[in-house]
Design a protein around this nucleic acid. Structure first.
Lengths: 338, 338
DNA sequence: TTGAAAGCGTTACCAT
DNA sequence: ATGGTAACGCTTTCAA
């Protein structure tokens, strides 16, 4: 009279197939020790009763949750201006999700754990921290708790080797060489003075390149809260120089548009009078007039590499140093002279 | 000699505090039956031994995983053109994550389950499907398996009431009234002929409004694979009419830019000769020249409402019909006549 | 106010 | 090739 609408367990499957729970377990875990015929019967029983594994039971038994967490940079909830772009972050999330699923895991999206209380809510095998800030507190918390973590982009205070990063130096040199090849003699840099590896590496590479090419470095720093407006201001001041630049490399997202604003209002044109390149590609640079050459930071490759690296760290491997992803320069009209 | 580096359990806490496991459990779950002094001792022991709950053990015992999954529309991995925008999706994800954490749950990001095999990997209390397609297969799969689900946006084949949606009709009327108030007499609609509630509701509201205001409807349909280019083509054909429109409402993301392309190349100006409004706000519309008036679809509110609704469905409440979120019109230069 | 013990679904180990 | 059973960490029930 009283039915049993409870979710089926391997016990139900075992009874249905006339085998033991062990055998069912072996079948669904592809342990090779079962007779093909038995295997067939079990599989049929599985779909007959509609059994799905209970991840929590597996996790309890095996000590592995099969879950990675991803902690995104900031809120994204009510951002006004843009230093980074949502396409990049969305690509990170989507690619991480895809990669974790490929390795039969699941991806949790969570706020950064700032103390032990947060950690309590985060019972996972490992954590991916995107865009860590200098000496990121989340990392400290995780390390103290013994939770394996990797970061996407380098925390400039860290040296443990557990991160993936883009080849910022290489991409900077590539841009500078490209601009030079298109005829630029005096390339200025628009960037931010903030403790992220992206900015530090870029600035360092620029300085070195200038020294090696006997070019006078011209740098303008923006306010990360208002990239477009402050970039425009910086470029305006550059254009007022006796010897103004003939090319601009603007790193933070949003700054190439600010540079374009300043150039246009000076009555100059891109790429006619100045060349312009951006440090981070995105829709806005593709649809501007003219479309702006920019560095593709390859979020998808970064994400896949991060999942892969975390899987290795979780399984106890030793660190072999950071994974470096090569960027790709998307050349567009803003740097194309004919 | 042999240490025990294993992760502490409530047993360790209990021993340390000199109480039973039951008492520890009661303390950490805020069941009110423990003596304050005992409680204090237990809490101290918890932080002394560095105990964190094992979600899987709790889940196994209680039958609730405490996890919601979110399934995003598509790949986001290598999209070329844009019918929707990453900012919107990113806001959905971030807000869902925040809301699930607020209710002491966790948010999984996963691909849509297309069959039972996918479901096996998705052992969660409930699922949020963003942007369902007509008769979304994922919903069928979930329903068959008895997994509670809600959608963000309405699946036009569904009537169960378990979804949140924007007030598409209201927002359309608001835009049309706004354009009229700014002097428009002949408003054309650029939209897509695709089975999403967003398009269907908008078209219906437009048709009804035209009928009621004795205006001849002018609609151009775009190809969802190439919104910008096909919108431009559509608007070009509108401008060639004997009696061309003096305002355009372009719904899918990307189409307002296409409209602007066509208008500009005809030597006309916005908002001088034509008014232009977009159906979905985003960065590209904010930075275009001129900035384009658009509907803020309020992804953050949608996400929070979805989490809330799913929590209710999971806890066995009856459906009370969809949750409707009011949109907000972001008025900008493209529709501002002085 | 507190404790002992059963049991959640699964897998690992040891038998057969 | 297959089965029995203990154990994973926790909450719940029942008893004290």
């Amino acid at each position: 009279m009283s039915t049993k609408p409870a979710r089926p367990t391997i016990r139900d499957v075992a009874i249905r197939a006339g085998v033991s729970m062990t055998t069912v377990s072996d079948v669904v875990n592809s342990k090779g020790r079962v007779d093909p015929a038995t295997r067939e019967r079990v599989l049929t029983a599985v779909s007959d009763v509609g059994w799905r594994p209970r991840r929590s039971a597996r996790a309890l038994r095996s000590g592995r949750t099969g879950v990675f967490a991803m902690c995104l940079p900031l809120g994204h909830v009510g951002v006004g201006d843009w230093l980074t772009n949502a396409e990049y972050d969305m690509a990170l999330v989507a690619a991480c999700a895809a990669a974790t699923v490929d390795s039969d895991r699941q991806l949790l999206v969570a706020p950064r754990p700032t103390d032990v209380r947060d950690l309590a809510r985060l019972d996972v095998d490992g954590v991916i921290i995107a865009d860590p800030r200098e000496g990121d507190q989340a990392l400290t918390v995780l390390n103290n708790a013994g939770v394996p973590a990797v970061t996407i982009d380098r925390d400039i205070q860290r040296t443990d080797g557990w991160w993936v990063e883009t080849d910022n130096t290489g991409s900077t040199l590539q841009v500078l060489d490209h601009l030079t090849a298109q005829g630029a003699k005096r390339i200025a840099l628009v960037t931010a003075d903030a403790p992220w590896a992206w900015f530090e590496d870029t600035s360092a590479a620029y300085a070195r390149w200038c020294a090696e090419h006997d070019v006078k470095p011209q740098v303008r720093l923006i306010d990360v809260e208002r990239p477009r407006a402050t970039a425009a201001a910086g470029v305006r001041s550059l254009l007022r120089l006796k010897n103004p630049p003939d090319a601009i490399f603007a790193i933070p997202y949003g700054t190439p548009l600010g540079a374009l604003d300043a150039i246009t209002e000076s009555g100059l044109s891109v790429p006619g009078d100045l060349l312009l390149a951006g440090g981070m590609d995105g829709q806005m640079l593709q649809v501007s007039s003219p479309p702006i050459t920019a560095v593709d930071l390859r979020p998808i490759e970064m994400a896949r590499a991060a999942v892969d690296l975390l899987a290795r760290r979780v399984s106890g491997e030793k660190a072999v140093g950071p994974v470096v992803i090569q960027t790709e320069l998307r050349v567009r009209e803003s740097t194309s002279r004919r």
